[in-house]
């Protein structure tokens, strides 16, 4: 019994220790990001990195999500004779929920994994050690610009996802299923308010922090060799994706 309790205690302590390490990494990165000298060039490069890498996949996901949503919601609403509410139903689902979550998941798979691999390779090829040996703070060059860039880029990509999703829903609802164009948009104007857009914005901002934080952390603390980088990359994608979904629920509950 004592051995069991001992093992349980050790496990619990190691979890706490690990969590403390992860949170301290974020706090140190944010502290570094807030203090000069600012690495504006690296920040711009990372904005391009996140945006450029993920734009196409976000466009594609947004388009097909909007189309599928429109199709499915139309058939559900038709059973109640409420097809006129298709526009607001698609818009609210996308703006409040699917836009921020799906675009964050797509950026995680596309840019988050690449970020982990890049920082991981810098770790195993001693480039991070080289920065430290030059009396420089690696967080200022590798981590802080990524977190700030992600906080800027995630809401922008989400806005693009929302726009494309709603317009694709319009194409399916109006062009394919015969709903009148005026109904689709006028009802949307009635039911979607600024609070819904704000919720989507808060979510995408927080997802930006989560994805860049976890991706950078896993790369920065990668194991040895190519296997270590591969494991870190997988772990970054899985952890970020799970955290996005968990945080989405909690934030959704608070902001509802």
């Amino acid at each position: 019994m004592l051995t069991f309790l001992n093992t349980l205690g050790e496990w619990f302590l190691s979890i706490l220790n690990g969590l403390g390490h992860v949170f301290l990494f974020l706090l140190r990165s944010l502290y570094t990001a807030a203090r000069p000298p600012f690495k504006f060039r690296i920040f711009l490069r990372q904005v391009r990195f996140f945006g450029n890498k993920s734009l196409l996949v976000v466009l594609m996901t947004g388009a097909f999500t909007g189309m599928v949503l429109s199709l499915q919601i139309y058939y559900t609403l038709r059973k109640f004779g409420s097809e006129a509410l298709l526009g607001p139903a698609v818009a609210l689902t996308i703006i409040r929920e699917l836009g921020p979550v799906l675009s964050a998941l797509m950026v995680t798979g596309r840019a988050g994994s690449a970020l982990t691999a890049e920082i991981g390779i810098m770790r195993i090829s001693e480039q991070i050690d080289a920065l430290e040996s030059m009396a420089l703070n690696p967080l200022r060059y590798l981590i802080a610009p990524n977190i700030v860039a992600a906080v800027l880029v995630f809401p922008l990509l989400t806005a693009i996802f929302d726009l494309i999703g709603i317009y694709s829903g319009y194409l399916v609802g109006v062009q394919l299923l015969g709903l009148s164009p005026g109904t689709y948009f006028s009802q949307m104007d009635t039911f979607v308010d600024m609070q819904d857009i704000r919720i989507g914005l808060y979510k995408s901002l927080s997802f930006g922090v989560i994805v860049s934080w976890i991706s950078c952390y896993k790369g920065y603390h990668t194991g040895f060799g190519a296997e270590g980088v591969s494991r870190a990359t997988t772990s970054a994608v899985v952890t970020s994706s799970v955290l996005i979904l968990v945080w989405d629920y909690f934030l959704g509950s608070i902001l509802l």
């Binding site: 390779i121 480039q127 080289a130 009396a135």
Partner: peptide, 19 residues
Amino acid sequence: LRNVRQKFGVVFQGSALFD
């Protein structure tokens, strides 16, 4: 530590050049 590191130059095993 950073003050002391200013005195150092290091040639790493794998060169560690920034890609």
